[in-house]
């Protein structure tokens, strides 16, 4: 098991919500202002800001100021690390099952 600096609890909590996943998907096409993101949804700007804060806390997006607008961009590293993390877990279990198979082969009477 590899150790990561990322807080996966925040990442998983963030990705567990359909609106936040939708926002991330839009951001894969390029950065967007907070206003432009909010326009796409029927919920209030405050609600969208809250979603964005959660994504930011999970390191999934970054926000920067441009004039009097806030620009949000995707942090692809977090997505890539999370994918790798889940993949590592799968590898771990594949190895564990292989080890069980070897063990039972050896102890066959």
């Amino acid at each position: 098991m590899v150790e990561y600096a990322l807080n996966f609890d925040n990442v998983f909590k963030s990705l567990g919500d359909p609106t936040r996943r939708d926002i991330l998907q839009r951001l894969t096409r390029g950065e967007l202002t907070v206003g432009a993101i909010a326009e796409r949804y029927t919920m209030s700007l405050a609600a969208i800001s809250k979603h964005l804060s959660m994504l930011q806390r999970a390191n999934l997006v970054t926000k920067r100021r441009q004039g009097n607008e806030q620009v949000v961009s995707l942090n692809p590293t977090t997505l890539a690390t999370t994918t790798e993390y889940l993949r590592n877990y799968q590898v771990y279990w594949e190895e564990t099952l292989a080890s069980l198979d070897r063990y039972l082969e050896q102890t066959k009477s």
Binding site: L15, R21, T28, P76, L79, T82
Partner: peptide, 25 residues
Amino acid sequence: VSYTNPTVGTVQQGLTIIMGHLQEY
């Protein structure tokens, strides 16, 4: 062997879709 965590299940689906879009992008 599987993890039947509903949250993580959605996360993985979400990730697959998002990573697909990102690669396209």
